[in-house]
Design a protein around this nucleic acid. Sequence first.
DNA 1: ACCTAAGCGAGACGGTACGTCTCGTCTTGCG
DNA 2: CGCAAGACGAGACGTACCGTCTCGCTTAGGT
Lengths: 203, 203, 203, 203
Amino acid sequence: MTDTTTGKDARRSIGARRNPDSAEAIREAAEAVLLEHGYPGFTIEAVARRARAGKPTIYRWWPSKAALLLDVYQRQKRDVVYADTGSLENDLFLFLKSLFRQWRETPMGQIFRSIISEAQSDPAAARALAESGRDRRQHTGQLVERARARGEVADDVDPQVVADLAASYAWTHLLTDRLEEDDTELRSAVRYLVRGIRTAGAG
Amino acid sequence: MTDTTTGKDARRSIGARRNPDSAEAIREAAEAVLLEHGYPGFTIEAVARRARAGKPTIYRWWPSKAALLLDVYQRQKRDVVYADTGSLENDLFLFLKSLFRQWRETPMGQIFRSIISEAQSDPAAARALAESGRDRRQHTGQLVERARARGEVADDVDPQVVADLAASYAWTHLLTDRLEEDDTELRSAVRYLVRGIRTAGAG
Amino acid sequence: MTDTTTGKDARRSIGARRNPDSAEAIREAAEAVLLEHGYPGFTIEAVARRARAGKPTIYRWWPSKAALLLDVYQRQKRDVVYADTGSLENDLFLFLKSLFRQWRETPMGQIFRSIISEAQSDPAAARALAESGRDRRQHTGQLVERARARGEVADDVDPQVVADLAASYAWTHLLTDRLEEDDTELRSAVRYLVRGIRTAGAG
Amino acid sequence: MTDTTTGKDARRSIGARRNPDSAEAIREAAEAVLLEHGYPGFTIEAVARRARAGKPTIYRWWPSKAALLLDVYQRQKRDVVYADTGSLENDLFLFLKSLFRQWRETPMGQIFRSIISEAQSDPAAARALAESGRDRRQHTGQLVERARARGEVADDVDPQVVADLAASYAWTHLLTDRLEEDDTELRSAVRYLVRGIRTAGAG
DNA sequence: ACCTAAGCGAGACGGTACGTCTCGTCTTGCG
DNA sequence: CGCAAGACGAGACGTACCGTCTCGCTTAGGT
């Protein structure tokens, strides 16, 4: 895919400091290996082979597989849409739809799945994932706060919890290969979240 | 030469058919290994050692690590509360609270995390997980249908989607070690789902 | 003494090249295992355990059990007597007697038996054995050539064939545990070979 | 009707005594497996599979691989020529030539190689081989005794030793894949043995 | 005509060894 | 000192056989 090694000319040390070419080659190789052979094929050895790098070079800069995985993840662009249509329901729907598409159509989905997997055993990945989750909820929460500011949402609503519910829905669909579903279900989910599922008269 | 008598009362073949004692010993050993050494320590070799079983005996009956994992999971009792308090909000809250507690206090949490992890690379585990998810949503959806029957929930609400939202919330908290949180957040989540997050006058 | 492990200090890699300590430890372990547990106990696993080496380290340098076996064999000293008493009959007798003693009293006998065994199934061992046989016949043939030079042996005699007959006799006695026999039989065999078994007047 | 047989006409027990059909099927399978897959492929499992026999049936009647091997060997016809041409040299040459051909052109060569191999680790095989060797030397020795009777061979010659030398030569050529050599060498070997290798005047 | 006893095919059992893979560490020699 | 290279001890992978065991069935011979 993104193979920069030009045949026989091997990269060498550039002196007593980190060689950015190597770092980049490793990141690229990591991503390529992950996409081509999946998470179980994502081994340090495979990455080193692909990057024409020595294993110690990888271990020197990334203490664990999780670290490399996170690095690859963060290297990806994040052009998820945070549209402002004036309607929270619409905003949330567009956000999730855009996120689903990104996960489907770019390496990010596979990478993120791998990170979640890794986090189940690697505490470092778990920590990183937790932090990234907090950030993400913060971001998504702003959609809700914006809506609250314009009176669309009740004052006592916790934007974090709403963001959590939305993100959870996305995660689960990623992890169970349900990113392909048509919009109806996603729209329903968002509608329930915003309007509730009660009958009009209930409460 | 090859001494097979390892101890005084080793399990033996009971003829040309499966020995249930061995099967059970393996399941027990699998669970114990998983809990003591976590998912990365969950190795066929380790399970075989622990169960005092030969590796081929495991491979004979469980084609993959995933299969064994699922078997161990299904072996667990599922005494999650499906209370019927007359209020869907309350029912859902109690259900999730009970599920959280079970995941926290029994091996099921760790086992289920491992299965989700495994499913990210093993298609068989993925399939089994998908099916189990469908079943679970079916079950949980009955809470919603019950509420709809008594007029608490709008007719056009899809119980599956509601169950999906609730289960997603649970999964994500399991996967990110947030099973310990106090009830407030959980209660909020359920409330938003049932009543919506809009201001009274909105819509 | 075949234990080279110096307590807890494990051998390590010495960089991107073969570690002679490991190689030697493996050779020593191989010999020890072969002598202590015989050919059926001569297992790559057992050698690796004994040498405190990883199996891949063995497979890296010795492609097969046969290769390791041959290496161990060639590592042994070959101080077989090639006396020059002026009498071929005597020379041959002393040579075979010395060879028998070496096979009896040093590991070489057991090792050589194992190699012959291995060569019956492993083509590589068969090739190596064939070559070593040729060399050996060449060597032993020199005894005959020396005798021919001094007129003791007829000109048309093929030293290789004589050496073959002598070596065959030795092999067979090794393979059938008849190294212990008293000298009478051996002396007869050599006498027949040199003088023939005919009556004086025959021909 | 309680026919549980899966095949069309599986062999069954014929009561509380050995079933000769099974025994024969096993012998045949053993020979076939040995010839088709060689000594390393000669496993009890393979023989059982091939013979459509249960492993215990084999172990019941043949305590070891060696026993089965020997049985297969003895099952072969032994039509080695023991010609009586009036010349011992000729008789021995014809005997060895015939033996070489038999080993080359029938399964016996491969089977005998396997037995020698097996005897290097299995004491039972070693014993059987030793005994069979004694018998064989006895037989071959008769050629020499016959010649001695007609005054062709000196009185003090031990026929056993002569037979041993001849058999050793044959064994070694079998074990080192030198059965194909042309007659010249074989003829020389026999000539040296009978006439000696000395110059006419030596002694 | 029943009953016991042993042989039969089948195949599961606890094991060991196979040869390969990856792990994370180590050390070299070049730049 | 960083780098590519790759050897190292360790140990898991999934498979093949080992030799033992039990099953359910078969039949012969003794009762």
